[in-house]
Write a protein that binds this DNA or RNA. Structure first.
Ligand SMILES: [Mg+2]
Length: 655
DNA sequence: GTTAAACTAAACAGCA
DNA sequence: GTGCTGTTTAGTTTAA
């Protein structure tokens, strides 16, 4: 049994079954909502089926959502407002007139329904201040934007109960009616009828007890398809970074309240609009623990929070230092590998001493002594360039990074050699090319880095750099040296609340003012520097809840990569280019180290035709996706040490 | 295997 | 009494 509410349409027989006519507004669907008694839960529930949703107790409820009704629940559909009133146990009091109404038994309900259907009139006219038709939720509006969402368990529970109670509902199908009362549509009679029917099966008292529980506004659970694709992945930023960016972009001199920070983060990173709650706790945790965030002044229940830029920058600096160290380590390893290779005596098949790139080697010197001074310089130069280029990229763990660098180096050498060979140039062309046209070498290196990254990640089953997280609505990380110029990457964000056009200026508290020593951040402080983050495994199963109505996962742990650096998104986009056929690669071997060495060997081998398809121009065309960017960034790398590093990318992607 | 960083969850208390 | 806010603790995951 249920009470149908909707818009009566002449000639549409499907609307004949409506129990309550809500008016003629087009915003009201022909069948907009239904009220029924859920025997499983022992409570009344409202199911919104109309396209434009409804407001329940001033909170927007999307279509498709079913939620419990309690006594005096206010419902608004279109511009028609009414209230759901529960009867008392034995007597029912008309909420408006105060007169008592005799309880209804199931048999009464039948007649009640009949009488109502003969008696119904269109409501309407009751519109007061125009309630806006529910639109896409806005973060700005606290009240009206709150979207009711039912937790998985609850949804499942409803589902299960619905099935279990089919029979019972049919037994109760005799009851329904409603009466309008001026501005307020009283559903009392219908409810009464339902109640009566319910009593036949269950204790109404227990139902009412449950209904007494406050209607809790639960955030709506979004299904993946309901979420704009770009907001299905968790931003690759640590909470500290999210908060800092929020304070910078949305904050004012007076700071921001906690709720403002919540909203700000949702606006900047709409992922947090769609994802389940829980992240707010992390935000509070960060605010409290991270000394970069300071309470400015008290307001109402809580504090207004500000960002201590100096402290934050100091943390960034330290972080950056660490990352650079890690990068250096990785490349040192690469260098070692390279040198080891150079030292290797004749290799079985593919290598002959006569093809050594360092023909004039001095045998009396140590490890890399077999290389000529020029060759060593050339290799060193390539390493330096690789390091530099690597800083602009999203990188992986140390081992993977090393493999990528090694392979990139090998590819570069191979390309150069082949090009030289094609051009009929003799000798070791690297030295010449570096000397004559270093920019070109950089281009080749960059292209090789692309190809190597794709190869290595593919081989290792790592996520390719293409899965970039959705960029924030307003980009927090900015490669630009100017620290505050943050909005350059701003882009429209579809259904999501667009960032308030508030000042983009940075509001910060000086350390002096805040009395902060420039000590290193404690371990508890969170990540700081916007930097590229490495893909990670999510700590938690994608959908932990057994009930799988949850579509978007709660934010999952992210880890910051030691190898990243800046402007992740851009880099990701670069990498996300379709994987081109990759250049000269050795046959896959089980041992990566072997593969690396083979690559090196092949590429160093002047005489050997390692790459039939090696064509430098082609290679560059295929892999030079970001060469331009890299060169653009160069000045930044060298000059700006304060650039944000970003936390990392882990993104929980909704499947 | 250990450690550090970041994340997650939740208990708890104060306050409006 | 309730919900929000801020603090704190504990546990997990990942990378180094
Ligand atoms: Mg703090």
């Amino acid at each position: 049994m249920q009470i149908l509410l909707g818009r009566l349409v002449e000639g549409d027989t499907s609307t004949d079954s409506l129990d309550i006519h809500l008016g003629q507004q087009k915003a009201i669907s022909r069948r907009h909502a239904k009220i029924f008694y859920n025997f499983g839960n022992q409570r009344f529930e409202l199911s919104v089926v109309g396209r434009n949703g409804a407001f329940v107790d001033d909170m927007f409820v999307e279509n498709g959502v079913t939620l419990p009704l309690k006594d005096k629940t206010r419902i608004q559909i279109g511009e028609t407002r009414f209230m759901f009133i529960l009867p008392t146990d034995e007597t029912v009091t008309d909420s408006k007139n105060g007169k008592q109404i005799k309880p209804i038994n199931p048999s009464d309900a039948v007649s009640l329904k009949t009488s109502f259907s003969n008696n119904h009139a269109t409501s309407s006219g009751s519109s007061r201040e125009g309630s806006s038709t529910p639109q896409h939720p806005k973060v700005n509006d606290n009240k009206s934007s709150t979207v009711l969402k039912l937790g998985d368990d609850f949804v499942n529970e409803l589902r299960a109960n619905a099935e279990a109670s089919v029979v019972k509902r049919e037994e109760a199908a005799a009851a329904a009616a409603a009466a309008r009362n001026g501005n307020q549509v009283s559903l009392m009679d219908g409810v009464n009828a339902l109640s009566a029917a319910g009593r036949a099966q269950q204790s109404l008292q227990s139902a009412k007890d449950k209904l007494k529980k406050p209607l809790k506004a639960v955030k709506k659970v979004y299904k993946p398809e309901e979420i704009p694709e770009e907001y299905r992945t968790k931003p690759n930023f640590s909470y500290s970074t999210l908060i800092a960016e929020c304070l910078r972009q949305k904050g004012t001199e007076r700071g921001m309240s906690l709720s403002e920070i919540y909203k700000g983060i949702q606006e900047l990173y709409p992922y947090y609009y769609y994802c389940p709650d829980g992240w707010q706790s992390s935000v509070r945790h960060n605010l409290s623990l991270n000394k970069s965030f300071r309470k400015v002044c008290k307001e109402g229940k809580g504090w207004l929070w500000g960002l201590d830029e100096e402290y934050f920058a100091e943390k960034e600096r330290l972080k950056r230092k660490q990352i650079e160290l890690a990068n250096i380590k990785a490349t040192q390893h690469l260098q070692t590998l390279s040198q080891q290779f150079q030292q290797q005596p004749a290799r079985p098949e593919s290598y002959s001493s006569s093809t050594s790139p360092a023909p004039e080697s001095n045998s009396s010197e140590s490890s890399n002594s077999k290389l000529s001074g020029d060759t060593k310089k050339a290799l060193s130069y390539l390493q330096q360039e690789l390091i530099r280029l690597t800083k602009d990229r999203k990188m992986y763990d140390k081992e993977t990074t090393t493999q990528i660098l090694t392979q990139a180096l090998a590819m570069t050498i191979a390309q150069v050699n082949q090009a030289a060979k094609n051009a009929g140039i003799q000798g070791f062309p690297l030295v010449t090319l570096i000397d004559k046209n270093p920019a070109h070498i950089t281009k080749i290196l960059s292209a090789a880095l692309n190809a190597a990254t794709i190869q290595v990640t593919k081989k290792k089953g790592l996520p390719p750099p293409s899965n970039s997280p959705a960029p924030p609505v307003s980009k927090p990380v900015e490669p630009a040296p100017t620290r505050s110029n943050i909005q350059q990457f701003a882009r429209p964000s579809p259904p999501v609340p667009k960032p308030l056009a508030t000042s983009g200026s940075i509001k910060s508290i000086s350390s002096a003012q805040a009395g902060i020593a420039s000590t290193s951040p404690g371990p508890s402080s969170s990540s700081p520097i916007p930097s590229i983050r490495k893909p990670q495994y999510y700590g938690k199963p994608l959908s932990v809840a057994p009930s799988s109505s949850r579509s978007i996962n709660k934010p999952v742990q992210q880890k910051q990569s030691q190898y990243d650096n800046e402007s992740i998104q851009l880099q990701f986009q670069k990498f996300s280019q379709p994987t081109p056929p990759v250049a000269p690669v050795a046959k896959p071997k089980s041992d990566l180290e072997d593969l690396d060495m083979k690559l090196m060997l092949d590429s160093m081998d002047h005489d050997k035709d390692t790459s039939k398809e090696l064509d430098l121009d082609k290679f560059l065309a295929q892999h030079s996706g970001e060469v331009e960017l890299d060169s653009k960034k160069r000045p930044l790398d060298s000059s700006d040490s304060t650039k944000d590093q970003e936390p990392d990318p882990k993104s929980s992607k909704i499947e």
